[in-house]
């Protein structure tokens, strides 16, 4: 992996924004798919009942290295879509739901759910997905170093300088031997970001990762985060409230159309973008 200039500079560099950065290790392998990471067609997930909710994804194609922002009000189904993509939530139906990994494999996610190949889905999560929650989600009993390296351990990778390198880029290297409880909320989010990326997944999914931070901290962490995903060539899919600077950071917007069924009081959301 090439070392870049200061990450802050990279985050501000207009040339690095607004385009998909493909690192050399990810050679296009899917001529037919145009090197997509996710292809979803006619995917639905609904919860029945009076306050029921239905999410429909007519079509969503996410390309390798892309930065996608899921934009919409609270409760519009952003987290649901993230959990579907992270393969922890089973879709009700899907015309197509495929993950293309950077190792050239094709995982038919819907098929795996239907055949209850839950272990394959779990393994795919560990290999190919990193997930940043809105707050924490760190193990309070593991040091920062162990938290960052948890997926690496699970995959049998060493907790080597990769962990230190990523901690350095997120400015948390001095906290490596502390427990999460000793860190500020902002520092914990940096640890969460480092954990999601330390095993070099294909996709990092983030659910409003800076929503609980003050604007200055949020701005800095978002800059570091996107610079890191750009540099690693990782596809970033992020739910966010912070609509203002998305274009500036090179995000593609995916909107949620939203309507309430007057009869049943149920909410229907439709993804477009």
């Amino acid at each position: 992996m090439k070392k870049v200039r200061s990450l802050k500079d990279a985050a501000r560099d207009p040339l690095a924004q607004g385009k998909v950065v493909r690192p050399s290790r990810d050679k296009p392998r899917f001529a037919v798919t145009g090197d997509d990471v996710f292809r979803l067609q006619e995917v639905t997930k609904s919860w029945p009942g009076e306050n029921g909710f239905t999410l429909t994804v007519p079509e969503l194609i996410i390309q390798r290295g892309e930065k996608v922002a899921l934009v919409g009000f609270s409760g519009c189904g952003k987290s649901t879509l993230l959990d579907l993509l992270a393969m922890v939530l089973r879709p009700d139906e899907a015309g197509e739901f495929v993950l293309f990994t950077h190792k050239g494999e094709e995982l038919n996610v819907m098929d795996a759910w239907q055949r209850r190949k839950l272990d394959s889905l779990a393994h795919a999560r560990m290999l190919h997905i990193g997930y940043v929650l809105q707050t924490g989600g760190l193990f309070p009993f593991l040091s920062v170093r162990e938290n960052i390296g948890i997926s690496r351990r699970g995959l049998g990778l060493p907790l080597d300088e990769t962990v230190e390198d990523i901690a350095h880029r997120l400015h948390i290297e001095r906290h490596l031997n502390k427990l999460p409880g000793q860190l500020s909320v902002g520092e914990r989010q940096r640890v969460a970001i480092a954990r999601a990326m330390a095993h070099h997944p294909s996709v990092v999914i983030a659910d409003e990762p800076t929503a609980s931070l003050d604007p200055i901290n949020a701005e800095e962490i978002m800059g570091l985060f996107t610079a890191l995903t750009d540099e690693y060539g990782v596809t970033l899919i992020m739910a966010t409230h912070d609509w203002g600077k998305l274009g500036e950071r090179g995000f593609r917007r995916v909107e949620f159309a939203f309507k309430r069924d007057p009869d049943q009081g149920a909410v229907q959301a439709k993804v477009s973008g």
Binding site: V88, D119, A122, H123, R125, L133, G137, F139, G154
Partner: peptide, 15 residues
Amino acid sequence: SRYLGISSLIGFSTG
């Protein structure tokens, strides 16, 4: 349950 859910999210199998 939260830690167990996060372990699952990270990709550890239920087994």
